[in-house]
Amino acid sequence: MDINAYIESGIIESYVMGVTTPEETAEVRSMAATHPEIASAISAFEVMLEKQLKSNVQAPPQIVRDKIFSEIISPDETGKVVPMESGRGDIWRFMAAASILLFIASALLNVYYYRNYKQMQSSYQQLLADQGVMQAHVDKMQTRMNLLDSSMEMLQDPSMKVVSMKGNDGVATVYWSSKTKDVYLLKNNVPAAPAGKQYQLWAIVNGKPVNAGMIGDCVGLCKMQNIPEAEAFAITLEKEGGSPVPTLSALFVMGKV
């Protein structure tokens, strides 16, 4: 084979520029391996082509260079840095989300507890009021019981004189201590006094009525005025506050000692 003719055929240029068929490529490589002239012809055209292609060129924009270098360099560095930063960002995002949720939960709980508190407060006030009412009842009952208790003691006292007073409209009893001369009245059957009127107890001493006190709202025995001496007791219905002399027409009950 004429090596020079082969070299001059254009096969070298076709091979270097990559427009040969696979068979041609294999052929050129095999020829170059056995013929140093062909190998050096290939090298010479490579140099020539390189020189040619480096002339009359257009430079790429800077942005392409930046993209390339960020792409080839970043996988190493961002592999460490960027994920960490984004990881940190995730943590902040997570914390922000969590704190917003906590805030909302806390706000809801505030509302819930405030409502509970208001409800409890009103229940508590209600209980306090109820308790006050109960206590008042208890106090009243206690007082009443004490009075009844002491009345009972007096009734049992053997030194007590009992003067039963009767009338058409009712019954009352005077308990008169022979030791202290204290007078107590028990309203057995005494209707309520009409408006503006009040019952008044009188002791009859030597045929004359002596005021023994006004009869109020008392529990058990009503303590009246001390009477040293009396033959009889009587109750009249007088104007409120009492009268100096009894209105005999309004005699309610009377009983002798």
């Binding site: 480096k54 257009q58 080839i72």
Partner: peptide
């Protein structure tokens, strides 16, 4: 080696870019 690659880019990018264009 990144500096070597930079050198490669400086010296070959325009020729390759022109062929691509």
């Amino acid at each position: 080696d990144v500096p070597a690659f930079e050198y490669l880019y400086e010296h070959y990018s325009a020729a390759l870019y022109t062929v691509i264009l």
